[in-house]
Amino acid sequence: MRVGVPIFLFLAAAGFHTALTASLESAEKEDTFGEEVGLEQLSDLQKRDQEEFEAAQMSEAVQDENTEEENDTQEEDMTDRDGNVEADQHESESDEDVDGMRQKREHLEANVEEADETTNLAEVE
């Protein structure tokens, strides 16, 4: 029995060592395979991200271009409106000037008529 215990311990240690070595080799293979697959997946993800990023940049550029065109159109419209408002103001000022002159003329005519009447009355007396 004394000889059997050391042999049993030796066989148990050898079996444990073999199982541990096989487990470690399997883990290394899985890690290597996982890294290779992970790198492929990572590169695919990076490619997709890059494509999405480029598409987003192009979309932003198109939106910026459209926004600039809209702003230009709005500025042109505002300039046209300002020009129309100024023309309307000039027309109103001209109309006001004409009305003012007409009132002055009517006032002067009324004064002339009164002066004529006064003169006629003075002659009659």
Rank of each mutant, 00 (worst) to 15 (best):
L42Q: 10
D49Q: 04
P6K: 04
L121W: 01
L9V: 05
S23H: 11
Q63G: 00
A22F: 08
D99N: 15
F16I: 05
A22E: 08
D99A: 14
L42A: 08
Q103H: 04
L9F: 01
E35I: 00
V3Q: 15
E30T: 12
L11W: 09
T118E: 06
A122V: 05
D82H: 13
D80A: 10
G100L: 01
F8N: 13
V5N: 11
Q74R: 15
Q46G: 13
E86Q: 09
M1H: 07
L20E: 10
V98L: 09
D64Y: 06
A56H: 06
V5E: 11
E68Q: 10
F8Q: 13
I7G: 06
T73W: 12
A19E: 08
E96I: 05
L121P: 03
L121Y: 04
A14W: 02
H107C: 05
T79Y: 06
A61T: 01
L11G: 08
T18D: 07
L108C: 00
V112H: 00
E36P: 07
L11N: 12
F53C: 01
H90T: 11
Q63N: 03
D88Q: 08
L42V: 01
S94E: 15
D97E: 09
D95N: 14
T79A: 12
E51P: 08
E30P: 04
A22C: 10
E40N: 15
L9G: 03
D88L: 04
S26T: 10
M78N: 10
A122D: 07
M78V: 05
N66P: 08
M78C: 01
E93C: 00
D80V: 13
Q74S: 14
E114D: 07
D44S: 09
D80S: 10
V62A: 02
E96G: 07
H107P: 04
V5Y: 06
